[in-house]
């Protein structure tokens, strides 16, 4: 199948990409890895009249930890997360996530920034970034601004707080502190499929073993990525024992609004949200306490 006709423009650097967006506004789409956009264009679900290709802006591909923050360039390929020793050793929740995105061939081009900016509730990074409390750097003609991940996503699917002339340039994640840990679990029918359900959890314990931070994000269980606020709140100030884990998982499941489709009936998905939240919290706890 062929996409409808469009004009292709290649941006050689970020300023050029922003200038092109400024010039063409709502008619234009950024082409990053293209592993979601090109299939949508082939099916003619998406039909942008102008594509601005940013694939050769190498300065947007990096993974580095500085000053207590992990900086991921928006054009970083999923495969680079898969193969990064820093990610494997310090951010296993990100490896859990990247290694479940589509399949290994798709991950050679698919980008972390694209996975987030596409704002597909079925994508895997949004839940993980919501759990981690990530921040998103957006650059436009007026300069740079930093948004929290929960203000980045809106109430509408495939929509973000990015202005038509802004580019997502970087994802910032707090570096792990003492007694912190996270995990992402995804249930899928087969490699390459979207999640039937997915759950990300990130926790920090205080010196007394009580939860001082809890983040829980859910994949493909509503029209938009879910931040399970009630579940997060329920964990604060208490030890992360089995009763607390199950109570939080019930609250997470209650926050879902799944629809019945070929991946299963809504009740099943809600039950899986509960189960996966339990697993993610248990694994996060194991990682936070040096159990893994």
């Amino acid at each position: 199948m062929f996409p409808v006709t469009f004009d292709y423009l290649e941006a050689r650097n970020l300023d050029e990409a922003i200038a092109l967006l400024e010039q063409h506004g709502g008619d234009a789409k950024i082409l990053a890895g293209g592993q979601s956009l090109i299939p949508l264009m082939r099916f003619r679900i998406a039909g942008p009249t102008i594509l601005i290709d940013i694939n050769r802006i190498d300065s947007l591909e990096y993974i580095q930890e500085t000053d207590g923050t992990l900086h991921i360039g928006a054009l970083t390929r999923e495969a680079e997360l898969d193969n990064s020793a820093l990610i494997r050793n310090r951010y296993p929740i990100l490896l859990d996530t990247s290694s479940m995105v589509a399949d290994p061939i798709v991950r050679n081009w698919a980008t972390v920034g694209g996975n987030i900016a596409h704002a597909d509730p079925a994508n895997d990074h949004p839940a993980t970034m919501l759990a981690l409390g990530a921040r998103i750097v957006a650059r436009g003609p007026a300069g740079e601004r930093v948004l929290s991940i929960d203000e980045f996503f809106t109430d509408a699917p495939f929509e973000t707080a990015l202005a038509p002339n802004e580019v997502l340039t970087e994802i910032r994640i707090p570096a792990p502190v003492e007694r912190s840990g996270g995990a992402y679990f995804k249930l899928e029918r087969k490699v390459g499929d979207y999640a039937i359900a997915g759950a990300a959890a990130y926790i920090v314990l205080d010196a007394g073993g009580n939860v001082s931070y809890a983040g829980i994000g859910l994949t493909n269980l509503a029209q938009v990525p879910i931040k399970a606020r009630n579940a997060e709140q329920s964990l604060l100030g208490k030890p992360l024992d089995d009763a607390a884990i199950h109570a939080a998982a019930d609250l997470a499941a209650a926050a879902t609004q799944p629809t019945s489709d070929t991946r299963g009936p809504a009740d099943y998905k809600r039950a899986m949200a509960r189960t996966l939240t339990v697993r993610a919290l248990r694994k996060a706890l194991a990682r936070a306490t040096g159990g893994e």
């Binding site: 292709y8 592993q35 082939r42 290994p104 061939i105 050679n108 081009w109």
Partner: peptide, 11 residues
């Protein structure tokens, strides 16, 4: 390794 159905020739 690249799925050549998911890249435009111009790229």
């Amino acid at each position: 390794a690249t799925k050549s159905c998911t890249m435009f020739a111009v790229q």
